[in-house]
Amino acid sequence: MKSFLLDGERISFEEGETILQAAIRAGKYIPHLCFHPEFRPHGSCKLCTVKIAGRQSASCTRLAAEGLEVESETAELNAERLLLTQMLFVEGNHFCPSCEKSGDCQLQATAYHLGMTSAHFDHFYPNRPVDASHPEYLLDFNRCILCSLCVRASRDVDNKNVFALAGRGIATHLVVNARSGKLGDTDFAATDKAASVCPVGVILKKGKGFSVPIGSRTFDKKEIGEWVDTRLKERT
């Protein structure tokens, strides 16, 4: 079987696998937010950036190849991942203390993993009203990190195209595909894949917040690296 080196450790891979996919299968965690094992990679959050022969590359989109020497767990790369995470926190309104996704949030868990203790940068405090028009689900755009997982799930699995990313650059934002722009005017349903794929606290089932006690939430029990490993094993 073909293999490459990840931080000096030999990782085998199958033809067509990316570095991140092969690493996760081998039980090696590379921080990531926009990657999900059930969807085609998007390569947008850049947290999974690794170094190959002195050049940086997103490991979720870079195909594994025989003999590659990949660096991931280095002080330099983790410092950059931390900066990226801090920027995600200040671009939106991420108030963990009152967020119902706290303890179940991949952004928060990644921040803990990277040792983030403050946002470092000045907050943007964008004005993003929530969309509560749907009877069962609420959209809190304040917490969107533009991972596009809901876009991909709605388009590729649900065949509905309820969500899209609009705008460019810093103005990029999540929109709902309805003339009114409201979720209540779409055919979004609780059974949609898009309803359960959000890694942060944007797409929320109404009236269910805080029903799991502190101590029993996803990342109370597992560090995110271990959770990624378990999620893959449960799928296979």
Binding site: S98, K206, G207, K208
Partner: peptide, 14 residues
């Protein structure tokens, strides 16, 4: 104002 009701008991205790 503008926040969902189930968030209030956690938010206001701050």
């Amino acid at each position: 104002q503008g926040r969902p009701y189930w968030e209030v008991p956690v938010m206001v205790q701050r």
